[in-house]
Simulated scan of single mutants.
Amino acid sequence: MGHRDKGDRPGDRGRSGGIDRRGALHCMVWAGTGVLWGLSGGVPRSLGLVGDAMAAAPSGFTFLQISDSHVGFDKPANPNALGTLQEAVGRISALPQKPEFLIHTGDISHLSKPQEFDNADQVIGGAGLPVRYVPGEHDLLDDGTGQAYLDRYGRGSQGAGWYSFDAGGVHFIGLVNVVNLRAGGLGNLGHDQLEWLEDDLRGKSASTPIVVFAHIPLWTVYADWGWGTEDAAQALSYLKRFGSVTVLNGHIHQLMQKVEGDVVFHTAMSTAFPQPAPGSAPSPGPMTVPPDRLRSLLGTTRVSVLQGTKRLAITDSPLSAS
């Protein structure tokens, strides 16, 4: 689909603005709640969301990823998921260098209820930034069709909500892998979306930095819990010729990274609650920890590229000591 006009950007619910065309992906950081990426000279680098690191941020194109807000969740793992989302947005609003937009990698809501989406929109809108969304499985619970999600966030998208756009010299691709998801089953992209993806990438230069974002990881983190996408290999085959590919996901509510050739996979923390490490519990789901430990699991993660390599280096810094 290539470049979109500003008036036709799926999920763009904030302000529009000029894009600094000075390069490719440069940084990603977590604020216990979100991860800040920037673009500068085609190389991923990291900054902190708070303190001296962010104050020294270079000018350039930046965007921020948040994930798994689960607005409406109120169980012991986090009785106030809306409050921790507000905390995340407060940190975003306080940034001295404003990102150009946010990416939300799914599970905006917990039960797809209109009030949950309304509350999420109000809080996330407080960042004053455009937002690009892809759905999580919790956003498609309304009637199984995901129409409520599409009505709010899918303008200009294809199929179940997939789309692409160009910004800052980077090609962004939002994929949907949560339609018809079976309990405990792997995510799936489906034939139509895979054909669209192949066509979308056709004609793109191999030197174009690519950022792919979807809810469920595009690599198999833990098949027994459905933490992977069954037809991801086909999608990734279309990306092999590109020299810089970054894949951003949520769903598992914890930081994990994998590198395959020129592809870096990174999963995001939740703004709502942690989940257990793969295989460390009978099943996935909200993990209850003592209240004074919660923010130690919603911490800050700095991600950078070591000089001379395309791979990202990740350092986790919790919001509070464990």
Rank of each mutant, 00 (worst) to 15 (best):
L186A: 09
R241S: 15
D292A: 08
G203N: 04
L47E: 09
R22E: 12
V50E: 14
L194V: 09
D262K: 15
A77S: 08
F63N: 01
K75I: 00
R21Y: 12
S237Q: 10
V212I: 15
I173L: 12
P58K: 00
N119R: 13
D74I: 12
V179Q: 14
G190A: 04
L82W: 04
D292E: 13
P209D: 01
Y238F: 15
L312M: 13
P282M: 03
V176K: 01
K98V: 08
L194D: 08
G156R: 04
P130N: 03
G48R: 02
M256T: 09
M269D: 07
H171F: 04
P282Y: 06
D139E: 08
L298S: 05
G190T: 04
G168I: 03
G203V: 01
F61D: 12
W227Y: 14
C27W: 11
V212P: 05
D142M: 05
R202Y: 12
G285D: 07
A31H: 11
M287Q: 15
R155H: 14
E87A: 15
S322C: 09
Y222F: 11
H266Q: 13
H191A: 14
G23K: 01
Q86P: 00
A235G: 11
L140G: 00
T105N: 00
V170K: 07
W227A: 12
R202V: 11
L141H: 06
P96I: 10
T246F: 12
P76K: 06
L95E: 07
G14F: 05
F101C: 08
G126K: 04
F165E: 10
T145E: 05
G41E: 09
T300Q: 15
L129R: 03
R9K: 07
S296V: 02
E195R: 14
M256I: 03
A55W: 02
L111N: 11
Q158H: 15
R311C: 08
V123P: 01
V303I: 12
M269Q: 11
A281S: 14
G168D: 04
L189F: 01
P282G: 03
Q158N: 14
G126Q: 03
T315C: 13
D262Y: 10
A94K: 08
L186H: 02
S244T: 10
R22M: 07
Q158T: 12
N78V: 09
P209I: 00
T105G: 00
I252N: 11
L194S: 09
V123Q: 01
G174L: 06
Q115H: 09
Q234K: 14
G17P: 06
V134L: 05
A94N: 09
R15D: 08
A321S: 15
R15M: 09
L319S: 13
G308V: 10
R13M: 13
A77G: 03
P44I: 05
